[in-house]
Each structure stands twice: as C-alpha cells, then as structure tokens.
Design a protein around this nucleic acid. Structure first.
Length: 488
RNA sequence: GGGUCGUUAGCUCAGUCGGUAGAGCACCGGCCUUUUAAGCCGGGAGUCGCAGGUUCGAUUCCUGCACGACCCA
C-alpha cells in the first residue's frame, strides 16, 4: 500500500477517536513501573503465575497479536519490553475494541495485574489503558527493522525505534561521558569550558570553519581544539583541568572522521607524558569497565584486551620494523627508499617536512597492526609544535598517540612551556603555511604572552571520544555513534 | 579525485536472457479468549533512483547524473 494510504488509514482512526470524545494526545500518564522494574520484581514467576500486583506502564506498542476476543501486545519503554494481555472479559467490550484498533507505534499507558501466561511469558493483564500519542506513520518491518544506512540516518528517530544497536550506541556515549567525568572528578580535576568561537584557532593541525560575528564585524573560527585556552588556565593556577566538548575541523567525512567531534582534553601540572600514559590507561579502563563490565571486549568480531600495562613502542622503531624503511636517513633518501619499496606517498609529502613522511608511514604501514591498546612514543619535532623536546633527542618530542583497534584514540605530550621555544615553533608553522600548508598552526600572541608569565610543566592529553565510543559500541563507523550523523 | 558494487511496494528482499513486476512483514476485510516473527481465508498497494540513448517495445541493454556502501588516493 502506498505510504499516503497507510497514513490516511491511521488518520481515519485518529478522527474516529476524536469523534468518540477520546483525546489522542493527552497530557500525562503517571506510571508506577518501567518494564524492567516489573521484570526485576517478578521475572522468576513460573507459568500460570498470578502476583496480585497492579502496575501502570507506559510505552510504545511494537507488536500486536489479535486473537478474536483476546489480544497480546508488546509494549516497549526506555528500559525494555513487556507483553500486554487484553481480553474482552478483562477490559469490557468497548475498551477491548479500542485496544485491538491500536496501531503499531502508538504510545499507550496501561495498567493491570502482573501475571505469567501458560508459556511463562511475564505479562500485564490490562484492565485500563489510555492512548497517549497516536502514531500516524507506519513502522519498518518488525523483524529486520530499517537496514538501508542512508534511510536510517535520514529517519533517525524511526531508526532508534526499530534498531536496538542504534539505541545502544547513544547509551554507550552517555556511559563513556559519565565514566570520564567521574574518573577525572575523583582525581581532583576541574571541568571547565573555554571558547568555541575563537579569534585565532590553534592546538591542532587542521583547517578551521570560519564564521562571522555581525556586532564585532569580524570573522571568528570554530575551535579545532581547546588546548591553548586550557594551558592558559594552567598559567592561571588551575593545576588539573579538563574539558569535554565539540571540536570542528574542516575536512572530509569518513568512517573515522566527522567535521564536528567530541574531544576530551585534560591537563595536569607538574606531570609529563609518562603521567599522561597513566591517566590514559586509567581513564580508558574506567570507560571500558562502565560499558562492558570487563576489560576484554569484542570489536567487529575480534577480541580486544584492555588489560594493563599497555604496550609502549617508539614510533621510529615501529615504522622501521613495519615498513622496512630506514627512517633515520635524510629526507630525499627516505623518499627515494619509500618509492623504491612501492609504498604509496602523496606527492606533496615529498617536500617534507620529514616528520609528515614518518607519520604517513605510521598510518599506512603500522596503524592497522596496533590492535590492543598501544602507546606510540616520541614523535618528530616538526609535526608537534606544542610538545616539549625529548630528553636526549633534538629532533623528537615527548609525545605519544594511543592506538586501539587500529585507530588513533588519543594524543598527548609533555607540554611545551618555554615561551621562546614555543614562539620559534609557531614561526616554523607560519613558514609552512607560507609554503602552502593550509593545516599549519597560526601564531597566537595572546597564548605566548600568557606562557611568558610561566606555565608549570604539565602532562596534557586529548581524546577523540567518538572513536572510543565506536570501539565500545562495536560500531564500524563514527556515524553510528552520532545521534544525528551529517547528511549530504 | 579514482575503482567496485548498489538504488524494485511503507519496510526487508526476490525477479525480469528486453514484452510495464512478485514474496514476507505492515495495511484493509473475515474467523479465532494464552499468543509471542501467532495462525487460517480474502483484498488493495509500485514513476522498478533521475535524465537521455538504442529498440516496435526499456524496470531489464548503453551513457550521463544523483544518492549510498566498501576499497584506494
């Protein structure tokens, strides 16, 4: 039947309800239990059991099995599903007629005694029910739900109604956010909020979104990272701070990238990147525990083990071992060797800087093999303008990226607090920008001025929470963990 | 940006070696007082993604476009 006819049929029912003086959209329905409450209290009841307990439930009708003078319906609420039993005897002829005239998708309130059927199914023997919201559109197929990804994302509420996995991803996000906050709060971190609209963007290698403030008559950038503001709070004397919020990077959409994504950044004065590793292990295992209740989960059919301590491997060693390329050679020789080995290398990278070539090798040759949590240590100086030099190595910085299931989940450093060194790093970024690198970071004078006041040495870490949520929700794409993924 | 695959009823999917399409669910009518992917009987429902081309005839073949999935850059 054409969709319009299905809607028309439901609208006719709506009109009939109104004609009988029944409001199809009443104001409230105080319930006494959720479906899960009922299961918790009476789940062990044997077949043919009666409880004498009357409950009031509210939720959406997701199945309706009419049997003449009796009917069964599935009612679903936020906590689960429970069967309703309605009979002409129990409800009276008039109410029973209304019950069997319900449509799948209608939201109802129902009350009655909790009992079990002869097959042992926990049910409510409905003696009173109320339509709380008439549904005017047909639901997807009851067994398969919505499958087409495009249709699912364009009809996300319908997707949540019909797909358990889609609902679960939203819950996992909430569990992860809560676990992060409760861990950091317990550690004495202060949750802060810093500007999203920024006059100068910084803190990450990325292209920004630009917007305009009419009153000030100037362009502002949506932040690509909160990093520089959080460090200014360190200067101000806040020794342990974190922020959870949206970052915006003007780049493509893929299974791993969304232009707006949720980041967690945390800074702790007087620590270095060793401390950041400790924080990362504790924070992520807290999240895993909150979601899975165990440190071993399955991601995309493969076991993932979060047991500590996590593997720590220097970037240069990993790249050398996996690519077979000697990364200590000068750039031209390095490029030549990469091309000789047939490893794809985008043309612009041939000009360097060398750090970008090495990070490219990490992405193409190493990353996929980093399944269980792995800290990749000590990144090139020239791709890390906000990190402190590695003790004993002029060309490297104390920085790590955390990889889980082949994905970069976090990035951290011993934070650079030498204002003169920081200015030089910015100037090198400006030089790259002048040479055409649109992702190079702009020099931020306000930040430098605050650094000159003295910022304590600090550990800093940033997480891409969407990716962690993906892993914990067993989602193959970042879009699955966004309540409303972007559409073209 | 390139490659591969896909787009058919509200949903999940078949199918047409070129002759205007089917099933299940959902919907409508009938029977049915313990079903649970209820069952049985009957019925209605489609711009076969869009636009061109070839052809007597295109949903099917060809080209382009849109949107999507996966892979590569």
């Amino acid at each position: 039947m054409a969709e319009a006819e299905l809607v028309a049929s439901r609208r006719e029912k709506l009109a009939r309800l109104r004609a009988r003086g029944i409001c199809p959209y009443p104001y409230s329905y105080p319930r006494t239990h959720t479906t899960a409450d009922v299961r918790a209290a009476h789940g062990a009841l044997p077949p043919h059991g009666r409880t004498g307990t009357v409950v009031r439930l509210a939720g959406r009708i997701t199945a309706l099995r009419r049997m003449g003078k009796a009917a069964f319906a599935d009612l679903r609420d936020r906590a689960g599903r429970l069967q309703l039993y309605a009979s002409a005897d129990g409800l009276g002829a008039e109410a029973f007629e209304l019950f069997v005239d319900l449509d799948l998708g209608d939201i109802v309130g129902a009350s009655g005694e909790v009992f079990t059927t002869k097959t042992g199914e926990l049910s409510v023997d409905v003696r009173e029910f109320t339509i709380l919201a008439k549904s005017l559109r047909p639901l997807p197929e009851k067994w398969h739900g919505l499958r087409d990804v495009e249709t699912r994302y364009r009809n996300r509420a319908l997707d949540f109604i019909s797909n358990e996995a889609a609902r679960r991803a939203v819950e996992v996000r909430a569990l992860v956010l809560r676990a992060c906050r409760s861990y950091l709060d317990a550690q004495g971190f202060l949750e802060v909020e810093t500007p999203i609209l920024q006059p100068v963007y910084g803190g990450a290698t990325a292209r920004p979104f630009v917007t305009h403030h009419n009153e000030l008559g100037r362009d502002l950038y949506l932040r690509v990272a909160p990093e520089l503001y959080l460090k200014r709070l360190l200067v101000g004397g806040f020794e342990k701070v974190y922020e959870i919020g949206r970052n915006f990077r003007n780049e493509g959409i893929s299974a791993m990238h969304n232009p707006e994504f949720t980041a967690l950044e945390a800074y702790e004065a007087y620590g270095d990147y060793e401390r950041a590793m400790e924080l990362a292990e504790e924070l992520v295992t807290a999240c895993v525990g909150a979601v899975a209740g165990s440190l071993t989960i399955t991601y995309q059919g493969r076991e993932l083990d979060f047991s500590r301590p996590w593997r720590r491997a220097p970037l240069l060693e990993l790249v050398a071992a996996r690519s077979g390329v000697d990364v200590e050679r000068p750039l031209p020789e390095l490029v030549a060797e990469i091309e000789r080995k047939g490893i794809p290398l985008p043309a612009p990278l041939r000009q360097g800087p060398k750090g970008k070539v090495i990070e490219h090798l990490l992405e193409t040759c190493v990353q996929d093999s980093l399944w269980n949590p792995t800290f990749v240590l000590d990144f090139p100086l020239d791709t890390s303008p906000l990190a402190k030099r590695k003790r004993g190595r002029e060309d490297l910085v104390e920085r790590f990226e955390l990889y889980i299931a082949g994905r970069e989940v976090a990035n951290a450093f011993s934070e650079l607090n030498d204002p003169d060194d920081q200015r030089e790093r910015f100037l090198r970024q400006e030089a790259l920008r002048a040479a055409g690198d649109a992702e190079a970071q702009p020099l931020d004078e306000a930040f430098l001025r605050d650094l000159e006041l003295g910022m304590p040495p600090a550990a800093g870490i940033g997480f891409g929470l969407d990716r962690l949520i993906m892993i914990l929700a067993d989602a193959p794409s970042i879009r699955e963990v966004l309540a409303f993924p972007p559409l073209r």
